[in-house]
Amino acid sequence: MDHLRQINPFAKRESHSSTSITTYKILTLLTWVLSVVTSIYYDTTDDVPHNIWHKNYAFYSGFTQNSVITSIYFVILFILQLGYIAHLFSSDSAVASAAASVGSHFIVNNILHAVFVFLFVNSHFVWAEIILIINFINLTSLYFRHNTYPRFIHAPAVSGPLAWTFVALYWNGAIMVPHQHSLVARIFANVFVWSILVYGGFFIIIYKDYTMGFALSVLSASLGVAQFFRQVIAFQWIFAFTIMSVLFVFTLLIAVPAWTGRELPWGGRASATTEPADAERAPLLGE
Rank of each mutant, 00 (worst) to 15 (best):
N190Y: 02
V167H: 04
P265Y: 04
I69W: 00
L139Q: 12
D43R: 13
S101R: 08
P283C: 13
L139A: 06
L169A: 09
I238D: 11
L197F: 10
H146D: 04
S97W: 02
V158I: 11
H179L: 08
T28V: 09
F229R: 14
L30F: 13
I79V: 14
P265I: 01
I111V: 15
L4K: 13
R230A: 12
F152N: 05
F118S: 10
I243Q: 10
G213A: 09
A270F: 09
T28L: 12
Y143D: 02
A240L: 11
V256P: 02
S245Q: 06
L119E: 01
T44A: 11
I26H: 03
V158T: 08
Y84A: 13
F106D: 06
I153C: 06
F203D: 04
W127C: 07
H105L: 12
V246F: 02
I107S: 05
L112Q: 14
G224M: 07
L183S: 09
T22N: 15
L119V: 01
I153A: 06
A99G: 03
Q180C: 00
F152C: 02
I137A: 13
Y170G: 15
R262V: 07
N56C: 02
P49G: 12
V108S: 15
G267Q: 11
N135F: 01
A234P: 01
A189S: 13
T260V: 11
V75G: 10
S91L: 14
V121N: 01
T273E: 14
W171I: 04
F202H: 14
W164T: 09
T274C: 11
T70P: 00
I107H: 03
E14S: 15
N8Y: 04
R186T: 06
F144G: 09
L112W: 01
H50L: 12
Y41K: 08
P178W: 01
G201A: 07
I130K: 10
V232D: 08
E129P: 00
V36A: 12
T242Q: 08
L27N: 07
E14G: 11
I153D: 03
A282W: 03
T273V: 08
G62R: 04
G201D: 04
S97K: 09
R5V: 04
M1V: 09
P276E: 05
N56Q: 11
S71Q: 12
V177A: 06
Y170M: 15
L30I: 10
I254K: 11
F63Y: 10
D278V: 13
A58V: 05
Y42K: 11
T148D: 10
S61F: 02
V232H: 10
R5W: 00
I131Q: 02
W164K: 12
G200Q: 03
L112C: 12
F118W: 05
A96K: 05
S90A: 15
W164M: 14
L80C: 11
Y210W: 12
L285W: 03
V167N: 06
R230Q: 12
S91V: 13
F235V: 14
H146P: 05
W194F: 15
V232F: 09
L132Y: 03
G213E: 04
H179R: 14
T165G: 05
